[in-house]
Amino acid sequence: MATGGRRGAAAAPLLVAVAALLLGAAGHLYPGEVCPGMDIRNNLTRLHELENCSVIEGHLQILLMFKTRPEDFRDLSFPKLIMITDYLLLFRVYGLESLKDLFPNLTVIRGSRLFFNYALVIFEMVHLKELGLYNLMNITRGSVRIEKNNELCYLATIDWSRILDSVEDNYIVLNKDDNEECGDICPGTAKGKTNCPATVINGQFVERCWTHSHCQKVCPTICKSHGCTAEGLCCHSECLGNCSQPDDPTKCVACRNFYLDGRCVETCPPPYYHFQDWRCVNFSFCQDLHHKCKNSRRQGCHQYVIHNNKCIPECPSGYTMNSSNLLCTPCLGPCPKVCHLLEGEKTIDSVTSAQELRGCTVINGSLIINIRGGNNLAAELEANLGLIEEISGYLKIRRSYALVSLSFFRKLRLIRGETLEIGNYSFYALDNQNLRQLWDWSKHNLTITQGKLFFHYNPKLCLSEIHKMEEVSGTKGRQERNDIALKTNGDQASCENELLKFSYIRTSFDKI
């Protein structure tokens, strides 16, 4: 039985969820670079991206490699990797027998973001014989899940209580170790020597080791999670996991709180800001991140802002960003909400898709409305799209047979046209069989910064309504002859009103 693990408890099935942008060198404390989270699957090609990484700022997932063999891993080693800020997950990587050479110096898994409450997941690794993470000293947050690894031993010899604050939620089941077939031998045991430290858990006094050649490092209890030197002297209180010299914040392997210019500090002093819960960055760093993602459509890219001495992905609820200094300031009234469309555009074809934009005031991208039916549609669209004030790209209304009016965009005031449909149009209306009105132009103002209007096959939309939009939106004169079809717009509506004058002759039985 794995020490510190839980057996036999019912657990939810383990679901495996399925960018080499360097964020800056980590400095003297770390020998390499800070790398983003990685999802490495199918083959070993991307694994080489770990070569210079000291910190993975995010998670590391290595999974679904069915053609790899043990010899493929023999020359692979990433000794610079010290810390993973989120979680480490391995799933069905064939041929991998140990992690001792792959990650010989991995010391800390912070667990800032977890995989279903777990910071370390080893699942269905069919050839893994031992973990071998002999320098792993601290899992700051989260638990361990090690399950269905039929060859995995050296679990009962690990004292997880020396690595985690609590072992109650560890789930370590259905491994070879369960069948008591392992016969784990710690260093020196074969020669009758006791080389590794022994600890007591559940009444068992057991030597602690990761492999037959690597003991588990056990520091004096007084050192807590700070770690200790090879001689057993406690590291500085700002260290986490390990250090090369005692009581020196510049000799830590990793930091308990924050890293700044080669030393570990309790908090980031001005003019620095907390970033990702582990390091200090200056304003320029946060500003660069903001600008890199301002026009990016890459998933996970955030326009970072500053709030409460932190550089964070977005302002919290009730705050909006001051564009001059990136500071989050309290909103006066309802907060603006910028919604970034991942692929640059979004099609609204149902109430469900409209709900995804609920509360958005600025759309960074283009909207395509293609709704053919739905219950209580006008009210639903207004509830979900009615706060949109600005669209950076274009607005396209296409084959939306259920629409009679666009009044559900009740606050839309600006279409920038930074991206144009077919390279020309910022407003595009095609084949809307029941569209009769755009907006009530006596109450609604709309500016279209650039781009043209396109109207074709809107049989109940009168040309007068379209011409009014040209005047109000500032697009009059931009359109070419064929942009607004004269014969297919309003051709099934009563669009022309003329005053009919009647004269009559009164007659009676005795007068003409």
Rank of each mutant, 00 (worst) to 15 (best):
L29W: 09
L29Q: 11
Y30D: 08
Y30C: 11
G32D: 10
G32S: 06
E33L: 13
V34F: 08
C35Y: 01
P36S: 08
G37L: 00
G37Y: 03
G37C: 04
M38F: 01
M38W: 03
I40Q: 01
N42G: 01
N42T: 01
N43R: 13
N43F: 13
N43D: 06
T45K: 12
T45P: 12
T45A: 15
L47W: 00
L50Q: 00
L50I: 09
V55T: 05
G58T: 01
H59Q: 05
Q61T: 01
M65I: 07
K67R: 13
R69M: 04
R69V: 02
D72V: 01
D72L: 03
D72A: 03
F73A: 02
D75P: 07
D75Y: 14
S77E: 07
P79D: 07
K80M: 10
K80F: 03
L81F: 00
I84K: 03
L88T: 00
L89F: 02
R92T: 00
V93L: 07
Y94A: 04
G95S: 07
G95N: 08
L99I: 07
N105Q: 10
L106P: 01
R110G: 08
G111Q: 01
R113V: 00
F115Y: 00
F115C: 01
V121E: 01
V121P: 04
F123N: 00
E124R: 01
E124G: 04
L128A: 06
L128Q: 10
L128N: 01
K129W: 02
E130G: 06
E130K: 13
L131Q: 00
G132Y: 01
L133S: 07
N135C: 05
L136W: 01
M137W: 08
M137N: 09
T140E: 09
R141T: 00
G142I: 01
G142E: 00
V144I: 15
R145P: 02
K148T: 00
N149A: 10
N149V: 03
N150I: 14
N150G: 13
E151C: 08
L152P: 09
C153I: 00
A156T: 06
A156Y: 15
D159I: 05
W160A: 01
S161C: 06
D165R: 12
V167H: 12
D169Y: 05
N170F: 05
I172S: 10
N175P: 07
D177R: 10
D178E: 06
E180V: 10
G183L: 15
I185D: 05
C186Y: 09
P187I: 10
P187T: 10
T189K: 06
T189F: 13
G192H: 07
T194N: 12
N195T: 15
N195H: 14
N195S: 12
C196V: 06
T199G: 10
T199N: 12
I201E: 08
N202K: 05
N202E: 07
G203K: 15
G203T: 06
F205Q: 07
V206P: 11
V206T: 15
R208F: 15
C209M: 02
H212C: 05
S213H: 08
H214I: 07
H214C: 08
H214P: 03
C215A: 04
I222G: 11
S225K: 08
G227T: 08
C228R: 01
C228D: 03
A230M: 10
G232I: 06
L233F: 06
L233H: 12
S237E: 07
C243F: 01
C243W: 00
P246F: 11
D247F: 08
D248L: 06
T250F: 10
A254L: 09
C255A: 02
R256E: 10
R256V: 05
N257A: 10
F258E: 04
F258W: 04
Y259I: 08
D261H: 10
V265Q: 07
V265H: 15
C268P: 02
P270E: 10
P271L: 09
Y272G: 02
Y273S: 07
Q276L: 11
Q276W: 07
W278K: 00
R279A: 05
R279Q: 12
V281K: 01
V281D: 00
F283K: 13
F285V: 04
C286L: 05
C286V: 06
Q287L: 04
D288K: 12
D288Q: 14
L289Y: 08
H291E: 11
K292L: 13
K294G: 10
N295K: 15
S296E: 10
G300T: 11
Q303R: 12
Q303K: 10
V305L: 07
N308V: 09
K310Y: 10
C311L: 15
P316H: 03
P316D: 00
S317P: 05
S317A: 06
T320I: 10
M321E: 10
N322T: 06
S324Y: 07
N325V: 06
C328R: 01
P330Y: 04
P330N: 03
L332E: 13
